[in-house]
């Protein structure tokens, strides 16, 4: 009986009439094993993603009241520094008057602040070049030629809208998701 089955399989193989049953079974078993291994691997891989408690702490509230015009503070959100800057009228005008087409990463100032709250600039304080924290929040810090931020690592310079103007960084400082809960309080994340 076993011999007969083997002969049939061989004939099918030689004449090329369809895929031999054994090859099909091997493919099926292999595919089943691959799916099974994937299903086993996924919980292991996913366990390395942010845990529920990390995600639960992923938003930060900032009270804007103590920040006077011209001053900026740094808050921590998801382990990253966030710059919250209270801009002066001159700084806003300077940022708005720039010819957008000249910028490396063209973006209007209005697109980087929230409507009606253009005195407040909120950006992720991480240089888009290689991840250093730019200077410019403390009064004694250098702010670069454009009055925004200056990265001490490789000399990238950002303007009062946090846009890249000079130096090796390719992109503007990122604007995180945030919302005004009221006029003096924002929630980041």
């Amino acid at each position: 009986m076993a011999d007969t089955a083997a002969t049939t399989a061989n004939t099918a193989h030689e004449t090329g009439a369809g895929v031999p049953k054994r090859d099909f079974m091997k493919l099926l078993a292999g595919a089943g094993a691959a799916v099974g291994l994937g299903a086993i691997a996924w919980p292991l891989i996913d366990s390395m993603n942010p845990a529920q408690d990390v995600l639960a702490m992923s938003s930060t509230e900032v009270d804007l009241k103590p920040i006077v015009a011209g001053q900026a503070i740094t808050v921590l959100w998801r382990g990253k520094p966030i710059f919250v800057r209270h801009r002066t009228a001159a700084e806003i005008k300077e940022a708005a008057d720039v010819n957008v087409s000249e910028l490396r990463d063209p973006q209007t100032d209005a697109a980087r602040v929230q409507k009606g709250h253009d005195t407040w600039l909120v950006v992720v304080g991480i240089c888009t070049h290689l991840g250093c924290v730019p200077l410019g929040n403390k009064p004694t810090d250098p702010r670069g030629e454009y009055g925004g931020w200056y990265c001490p690592c490789h000399g990238s310079q950002y303007d009062t809208s946090g846009r890249i103007r000079k130096g090796p960084a390719p992109l503007n400082l990122a604007v995180p998701d945030y919302a005004f809960e009221n006029d003096t309080k924002i929630k980041i994340g």
């Binding site: 919980p43 292991l44 996913d46 366990s47 390395m48 993603n49 845990a51 529920q52 408690d53 990390v54």
Partner: peptide, 30 residues
């Protein structure tokens, strides 16, 4: 993978295991 989440310190070991059970993705399964 458990060792990536576990803390071998008497003050934190028990809580880190409970965190694995509740917060880490598939931590309960691991």
């Amino acid at each position: 993978f458990l060792a990536m989440h576990y803390t071998p310190n008497t003050a934190m070991a028990f809580d880190s295991v409970e965190r694995i059970m509740r917060d880490v993705n598939y931590g309960w399964l691991l």
